[in-house]
Amino acid sequence: MIEDLIAMEDAFIGWLTALEPVKIADIATVVALYAGAFFAFVGSVGLLKLDTPMKRLHAPTKASTLGVGSLLLASMIQAFAHGSGSVHEVLIMAFLFVTAPISANFISKVNLHREDADPTPPPPGDSAWATFDTHPADDRTPKEV
């Protein structure tokens, strides 16, 4: 029993020492690459598969952004493992994650404006949703545009 445990411990230590930092970084890179590829793909599958414009908005804005984020992470780990470290990928990542909600918000406003979405419930506290609150002079049916 005890010999078994000692043997297991030896095997574990041997396994740990065989894993050099570079190897661990490579494994992390591969995991990040597969995750990124998977999420980018799922984002587009959702874009094609879902049936209403508002539902379609869900898949690409989030999954694709996370996919690119993962690929950038892979690129960063790789740069640190092999020589020169590089952190400027963080900049693209931050930019994408900050702008994705804004794009999504604008596109959903377009869907509301063109009446491509389900009818909306009325806002409890105020008179209207901001997209529908237009100047009377701008009034016309959206489909004419």
Binding site: H58, N105, S108, L112, P123, D126
Partner: peptide, 22 residues
């Protein structure tokens, strides 16, 4: 709300008192 999956924030009411989320 937009980044956490399952929900997308679509619009704000004109007085700023509530948020429309899909």
């Amino acid at each position: 709300i937009t980044l956490t999956p399952g929900t997308v924030s679509a619009d704000l009411s004109n007085g700023g008192s509530c948020l429309l989320v899909h």
